[in-house]
Nucleic acid binder design. Structure first.
Length: 305
DNA sequence: CACTTGACCTGTCCGC
DNA sequence: TGCGGACAGGTCAAGT
């Protein structure tokens, strides 16, 4: 679930909440969630002050004053939820954690950490950052800030789609690296473009009227131009709406994103296409649940369903 | 090498 | 109501 807009939303929240706070403790459950803790925790984490929070692709980085950083991938069900010290928050009027009625995490109020909490980062002012991850796919690691670019993932990952340097020509050139596969698999490939997942692949392909099973080399250049616009528009809209909450995703304050209220096809099978009224169907492309409008996005003749 | 499929996990939902 | 199986989807490893 957390794709670029969701991770970006968490980053924006943490940028407001974390800088200048000083780490007082860190506890974790499984080594899978925090592989190099606790070996380096005492030395490089406790007493460290948060300098900045940044994002690259779907990865978050919390930069510390010790020249170390926490690098975090939320994968499918990861959450980073900040909870201010309640008495201190009341006194200062800051950052009280609230979940609205009907919120899937409503039960978390006053109950974090819960059984999905993998890491609890405590700060000297009594606040906490909880890394929750139901399915344990996500991870957090502590490493020297200067070594982050040397991670295999960062060496291979493609450009940021919302960067000012990124344009349709670059999208086209990079997609052609996967010219014999279908466009959905190519969009999901993080080495082509960073940050796109299942939701925004389906949404942008609907916007460009391209069937997800279309082979990349069969897509004409003018369609790629339209796809570039659709992709960047949908990412921007989602960031504006605080991301998509399907089940697990919440922002740094535990709040849901509302993009799903604006989704055109994703998780809308059986409902009318907002453009032509045809019933949206769900299929399987690139091993993923895939949502299309059969009228707007006809299956290319060459592709076999 | 290019590309596809399966594994990693756990909670939820659907059909019998 | 209980139970097995499919499904969710980011990324890497293994397979074709």
């Amino acid at each position: 679930m957390p794709e670029l807009p969701e991770v970006e939303t968490v980053k924006i929240g943490l940028q407001r909440l974390l800088p200048k706070r000083v780490v007082s403790n860190a506890v974790h459950d499984t080594d899978k969630s925090f592989p190099n803790a606790p070996a380096d925790v005492q030395q490089f984490l406790i007493g460290a002050r948060v300098i900045a929070v940044t994002r690259r692709a779907k990865v978050l980085m919390i930069e510390l004053s010790t020249n170390y950083s926490l690098v975090i991938h939320l994968k499918m069900t990861g959450q980073l939820v900040f909870v201010a010290d309640q008495p201190a928050a009341k006194a200062s009027g800051l950052n009280e954690l609230r979940f609205g009625a009907g919120h899937p995490n409503e039960s978390l109020v006053g109950h974090l950490p819960d059984r999905s909490t993998r890491v609890t980062l405590s700060f000297e002012d009594g606040s906490h950052l909880y890394f929750n991850d139901q399915r344990k796919f996500g991870w957090m690691r502590l490493m020297p800030t200067t070594e982050i670019p040397n991670l295999d993932f960062f060496k291979k990952v493609g450009p940021e789609p919302l960067s000012v340097d990124f344009n349709w020509q670059q999208l086209h050139e990079r997609l052609l690296r996967r010219k014999n596969t279908n466009i959905k698999a190519a969009l999901l490939d993080q080495t082509v473009v960073a940050g796109i997942g299942n939701i925004y692949a389906d949404e942008s392909l609907w916007g460009a009227k391209i069937h997800p099973a279309t082979i990349v080399k069969d897509i004409p250049e003018d369609k790629i131009k339209v796809l570039y616009k659709a992709l960047t528009d949908v990412l921007k809209l989602s960031i504006e709406k605080g991301g998509s909450t399907n089940k697990n995703y919440v922002n740094a304050e535990g709040k849901r994103g509302s993009y799903m209220d604006f989704a055109r096809v994703f998780r809308r099978e059986g409902l009318p296409c907002p453009r032509c009224g045809t019933t949206i169907v769900k299929s399987r492309v690139a091993g993923r649940g895939t949502h299309t409008c059969p009228y707007c996005q006809p299956l290319p003749v060459a592709a076999t369903a």
